[in-house]
Amino acid sequence: MKNIIEVKNVEMHFNMSKEKIDNLKEYFIKLFKRQLMYEDFVALDKVSVNVKKGEVFGIVGRNGSGKSTLLKAISGILKPSAGIIKVNGSIAPLIELGAGFDLDLTARENIFLNGSVLGFSNNLISEKFDEIVEFSELRNFLDVPMKNYSSGMVARIGFAVATMVKPDILIVDEILSVGDFLFQQKCERRINDLMQGGTTVLIVSHMLEQIRRLCSRVMWLDKGKTKMIGETKSVCDAYESCV
């Protein structure tokens, strides 16, 4: 099978200097005093991984180990400081559900706005509109400004919009832990449907049993370095015995 995602020697550096300069005045003062600080922090250190088409690939690791950073680099949100990332296909990033919702707008308006954020045309969204509404079970609240919604309701619409068209790659960052149990089940079912249809899935979750249930292969990141890549069972067992 072909690699749909290729990550090669990717490094991500952040400036962790305590005093971040965000205005001209300080910039010139520090420049003049030669105090411009740069404190290097390596969030990803020479990470390499290939994901094959149709795989469900999990990423585990403690907080701050660079999981989200890796997913963002793959989605094109962050540009890596070094290394190469190749992606062959469309990505639906579920990094934080409801990104791009404007809470002053109604749900109906937000569905269109959020759909276009993901690069869908208005026609396509109209076509899928009923499906989205049905999945999110919010028909009676469609014309209410979203500031009156609970976070669970927002998440439901966000998930429905992001998965309305079968993407080549679905990126799921911790979002399966929000919302109620029924919603989580529903999302898992949708992800399973997409997988049957050939979508490649990247999942980050701190619920290890979820990773065990869904993934075929798993990567363990530790402080920005690859600790292990392999079969779900062996990686999860190793990770579990370590934490």
């Binding site: 989605s75 094109g76 949100i77 990033p93 990094i95 990104a99 791009g100 954020v117 993901l118």
Partner: peptide
Amino acid sequence: SSLIKKVYI
């Protein structure tokens, strides 16, 4: 910013 941090646009 909230959008730019979460989706590629």
